[in-house]
Amino acid sequence: MNTTMKATMAQCKAELLRTLRNKRFVFFSVIMPVAFFFLFTSTMDNRKIGNVDWSAYYLMSMTVYGVIGASLTSFAQRISKERSQGWIRLLRITPLPASSYIFSKLATQGFINLFIILNMFIVGGLGKHINLPAAAWLESGLWIWIGGFSFMSLGVLLGSMRNPDAVQVITLIVYMGLSILGGLWFPTTSMSSTMQTIAKFTPTYRLGQGAWNVIGGSAIDWSGVGILAAYVIVFMLLSSYIMKRQEAV
């Protein structure tokens, strides 16, 4: 193995350790989605959303909620800390290539998101005896996994703020706000029509929608994919603009 590969592996390992030791990550992405899932499928049993059982529908909602939480609470916080503490400056003088740094962030987030999805599917699926065809499990899981990367762009944008305390508060507001508005906590069908219209424009709803559609037997909504992609582009443009301006000072 050459030095760059070893460095990239070490970087991935360090990112993973930092995430698993982050109490916010464990709370928002592991404990809270599982707890919410069991709480709201026990109190509101035997319902259907469209043609989908409530427990299967809500399992998708909470899995999406956990995956988004990993990008917003822990990933954004790591980015912000690295930037505010001069860490990125220090890395720039080491032989670690910028591509290895970015790759390790993506690979680690991919691994973590996969872990959240498997954790939810196994704990929730077995705990509530959810019956879905194997293809539906696989496709919904893949959709959430691939779509979940899009929230890294929002994580970078939130992480571009220099003040780590502000990042924590604002991230939490954005995370909770988008999750509730996007129908991850309570389905959009229980909302007023105005709120339903607003929900359709949130990236959280669009990530959830793909999974809900897959388990309902319908196709992925491509306009939803388009809206999610548009958000990614806007977030990336905004964060690169902010970071350039910060560097110019």
């Binding site: 030095t3 460095a7 592996m9 390992k13 360090a14 350790l17 982050n22 860490w87 003088i93 032989p95």
Partner: peptide
Amino acid sequence: RNRIGAMLQEVSVIDNLKVSETIDLFRHY
């Protein structure tokens, strides 16, 4: 860069890593 090293001003430490883990990470670069 492989042949240089630097201690910069206003660089703090990274969160959620132990001292030995932080040093080991840099050794791998």
